[in-house]
Design a protein around this nucleic acid. Structure first.
Lengths: 110, 110
DNA sequence: TTGACATATTCCGATATGGGAATATAATAT
DNA sequence: ATATTATATTCCCATATCGGAATATGTCAA
């Protein structure tokens, strides 16, 4: 067996840095391929191909209008990533850093 | 050029489902390889290899004690993932669904 | 020193990738 | 019909997987 395919799930689709960049550049807007091309400065086939992957995992949705195709981010598909990573937040968050600091001080003052 | 290597960054390391499972199984505990093997029911080389990838991207840290190696999750390396995905939360969260519902109702009642 | 235990590494093969370049498809306008 | 615009697809290749099996390394114990 080989590596998990990029189209397997949002985790794999989004592992590619350019695809993260693409999603971030789109934000909440609905954009045509050419608008994305201009915004990112990549060549058109590259944008289309990355959109193709994102579409397969439903991270973007496509709407055809005339000869253009309008894409928008389907943020719900990012929720599994958010849900997986969020529980770990307490391990690095400021609240606990502060707690650590307090404990450090208590040590020193003792 | 080929696909972004798994060891390139936490995004890629964590794209592999088994590695997410491994990290989740470890939680905040410090565990030996064998403890992880038992906990997950995988074979030992598999666990070692996945730990190797996670270690390269510093998602886990290793401490040698006798003939054992104790691993623990370095959650800070998950922060970039959290930070990247979090801004999109407002696009799916209940708060905004509720807002949508309110707006829908207002339309209908008008 | 020899064995037992804990863990890492190597060798293998099938497979999917991303980029570049070229080209195909589709819709509109003239 | 033809040209133009907008987008997708194909063909190419170098490369890094993951899993399985076997084996190597390292450390303790008797």
């Amino acid at each position: 067996m080989a590596r998990t395919p990029t189209t397997f799930d949002p985790f794999n689709a989004v592992a590619e840095p350019k695809r993260r960049q693409l999603i971030q550049a789109m934000g909440a807007e609905e954009l045509s391929v050419n608008e994305i091309v201009e915004r990112l400065g990549w060549n058109q086939p590259s944008v289309s191909k990355h959109l193709g992957v994102l579409k397969q995992v439903e991270l973007v949705e496509e709407r055809r209008v005339g000869r253009r195709r309008l894409y928008r981010v389907n943020a719900e598909r990012l929720k599994p990533i958010f849900d997986w990573v969020t529980p770990f937040e307490r391990m690095w968050s400021e609240r606990f850093e502060r707690l650590d600091n307090v404990l450090e001080k208590m040590k020193k003052e003792k």
